[in-house]
């Protein structure tokens, strides 16, 4: 049984990692399990300057999922570099830094900084946050802006470059291809769906920011389809994310075309979910007599051709 997967030049001992923003900097989960078990550690989005985030309420439950409008609250790059990075650099061999910027220049600044740190093995560009007024989803839904950000970062950053796309577009494959052509080494599919909940008692939106991003099992079928579609459209590895709360849910993403997967909201519900998932995926391969998890990637497409 072999859980190893390759994303660009990185070899992950297994395909399971947290989705940025659902795992803090990993420190909150240290009591629950050894983070070395993870395929990679993806940290919460870092921006150049500190961000307070949006006004509360910031989270609310929806049917089979949740909605959030955190607004990329984070302590900023300098604090991260000085105070957090030293604490987390040894938690896992593969540390992926997720970054966002309000401008191309901010992305470039962070890429330049990240390039200097050997302990950062890859960058994940967040061009898909629905909860900030500048940048965020605005970049991820504007094809020209997306191309410009990815190609600008590509010029500066020589290690593995991952781009996390938003599902809030008409055809995600167009954006996937654009990111690939601009130099992305892998794509993370997908960020949250833009949404809103209204409190019928107060007759006002529940969230302080009025709207937010929907995540959890509620969005899984759409996420699986986007991975499926993009698998046909691009040739770089895909990291699937959206409502993974069981082994079966994870397998759907591999079969649709994902090389690795990220766990998001489920980390809140079951902080020990990822190590359990890794164990169960290993057991699955053994039981099914499949030599490696990589064999599953895109298998649903091959079945389609056979019909």
């Amino acid at each position: 049984m072999n859980l190893e997967v390759k994303i660009d030049e990185l070899t992950l001992k297994n395909p399971v990692m947290p989705a940025s923003g659902t795992f803090g900097f990993g420190l909150e989960f240290k009591d629950i399990f050894d983070l070395k078990n993870l395929g990679a550690l993806v940290v919460k989005t870092i921006t150049k300057n500190p961000r307070l985030g949006n006004r509360p309420p910031r989270v609310y439950e929806v049917s089979c999922g949740m909605i959030n409008s955190i607004g990329l609250a984070n302590p900023g790059w300098d604090y991260f570099r000085e105070k957090i990075l030293p604490q987390i650099k040894d938690l896992n061999d593969i540390l992926i830094l997720n970054i966002a910027g309000e401008s191309v220049e901010e992305f470039e600044y962070l890429a330049r900084e990240a390039q200097r740190f050997d302990e950062i093995k890859a960058l994940e560009l967040n061009v898909s946050c629905p909860n900030v007024s500048k940048g965020g989803i605005a970049f991820g839904t504007d094809l020209e802006a997306l191309k410009q950000i990815v190609s600008s970062v590509r010029k500066i950053y020589s290690k593995t470059l991952i781009v996390k796309l938003t599902p809030n577009v008409t055809d995600i494959t167009v954006y996937a291809k654009a990111a690939e052509n601009a130099g992305a080494d892998a794509l993370t599919l997908i960020n949250t769906f833009s949404g809103m909940v209204i409190d019928v008692k107060s007759k006002k939106p529940v969230l302080g920011n009025k709207h937010g991003g929907v995540s959890g099992p509620a969005i899984r079928p759409m996420a699986v389809k986007m991975v499926y579609d993009c698998f046909k459209a691009v040739s770089i590895p895909l990291i699937g994310v959206g409502g993974i709360d069981s082994k079966e849910a994870a397998l759907e993403f591999f079969l649709a075309g994902a090389t690795a997967i990220q766990v998001g909201s489920q980390n809140f519900v079951e902080p020990g979910f990822m190590p359990r998932l890794i164990r169960e995926l290993g057991e699955y391969l053994r039981e099914e007599n499949i030599e490696g998890i990589a064999k599953l990637t895109g298998l649903a497409h091959r079945r389609e051709e056979n019909v």
Partner: peptide, 24 residues
């Protein structure tokens, strides 16, 4: 309202004024 309860989601913040600074 909170999603996780242990500091990961940053969903449950409240405004606090301490050391002459507003913080969540």
């Amino acid at each position: 309202y909170m999603a996780c309860g242990f500091g990961a989601c940053l969903g449950c913040v409240v405004k606090v004024f301490s050391n002459n600074e507003i913080e969540y």
